[in-house]
Amino acid sequence: MIYFIIVFISFLLEGLITNIFSLNSLFFQNCFTLVSLLVLYPYFYHKTKTFYITAFIAGMFLDITYMNTVFLHGLIFLALAFLIQYLYVYISSHALNLVFLISIVIIAFRTLTYFILIVIGVRSFSFLTYARSITSSLLINIIYGLILYWIMEFLKKKLNLTKID
């Protein structure tokens, strides 16, 4: 239950934080919901199916609440959930590794979204916009990921949570 609450808080923060930073901020484009899924995956011990469902629902909520689309982020998050699972097979859950993992997942997320939006023709974007979408997202999401990682480490000890290392 605690995992769903954390994903939901991240989802609310994703919208809330946009009121603090400027619209096209150069360093503060957040993807907190996705980062929370990445940080929380090791805690979905033997519950991969639940993790996929959580990722899909989180994406759908993003679609409906903030993006004005349906299924787009739901399905992208599902694809990224597979990627996250695959990455954790080779990379252990550690603060330093997390910086690398967040970078990979953010790049994959932006690339996937960029190509899908172009292919389905909902919108058209320049390559510069795509490049900026990645550079402007890394800093804030890495900071949030690390904060969440330490919060989860603290909660793991307090609440005896199980985690895949």
Binding site: T18, Y66, N68
Partner: peptide, 11 residues
């Protein structure tokens, strides 16, 4: 209430 969540949409 929120501004440009998801980067792509100037919404």
């Amino acid at each position: 209430v929120s501004r440009n969540v998801g980067y792509w949409n100037q919404y």
